[in-house]
Amino acid sequence: MKTVTKAIAVTALVAGAGTAVQAQSCDWQPDRAVTYIVPWGAGGGTDANSRMLASMLEQKWDVPFNVVNRTGGNGVTGHSAIARADPDGYTVGAVTVEINTMHWVGLTDLTMDDITPIALVDIVPASVLVGKDSPFETLEGLLDHARENPGDLTGSGTSLGGIWHLALAGMLNAEGMAPDAIRWIPSQGAAPAMQELLAGGVDVATPALSEGKSLVEAGELRALAYMHDSPMAALPDVPLTANALDSGWTLAAYITISGPGDMPEEIACSYEKAVAEIVQTDEWAEFKASRGAEVVSMPSAELVDYMKASDAALGDTIKAVGLAK
């Protein structure tokens, strides 16, 4: 009788775990230092999220998680380093949305097939920001001006072909305008772009809303739109492009923790399990709230689908705005 219940319990457990996990026990653990590669610089959003996650994994598994910022080539260097590493579980990294843009714009041959997505860490929707003295009070006003005077306005936020450039160009394209109706001025990231915006060097910036949150709250910048379908908890009054635009355009960058290509299932699911537990802690919730972001989580199977969909959508955008190579 006893053995029967046990057998049933085990069957239920395996069935409950679903097809993605299969018969893995998911209890692999590193027994020495792990290298955590971040393709972007210290101080940015990817760096902050990854360092927080790394320090919590470190507590959990009691081995050092050494964060290495491998910057360069608009993300190519770091992503290649993650993809090329030995998939033994001792190298993981912060693969970001650029894995789905870089190959379309011809920067690299690397695609998401070369890495093993483990878990979603953050979703970072874009925004439309203008200076406090800007004549534009609404997104419609801005877009109407751009429609009537193509090339008159300038926008910034990241490098040419970077994700925030696609946010702007894609939105213009979706609204039936030339993608360069607002001319893109490249910058070395979101912070210098907002500096330009404050100084009156450009008319609009489209970085992550979380990047501009302090300046918006301080009244130095005005947020005309949030390129998402649900409002940001910290700035609930910013209009959503999903509602405001006929095209329903939205765009969000994302940050994952991923392993090198062909990471053994056992190791990948152990990481997935650990991260899933971490994102449920209060500490993680507090960290997210401090940055004005929401806690996100996604099983790795769903993450793969999400990234595939993003790859196709970004590919369409990149081709539409004429940046494909």
Partner: peptide, 24 residues
């Protein structure tokens, strides 16, 4: 303004935000 002048202050802003303090 919450605009980092260099990478050190960028990290520092992150820490301030985490402690519930918004530069401005």
């Amino acid at each position: 303004f919450g605009i980092p002048g260099d990478s050190v202050t960028a990290i520092a802003i992150g820490v301030l935000l985490m402690k519930g303090l918004t530069p401005g």
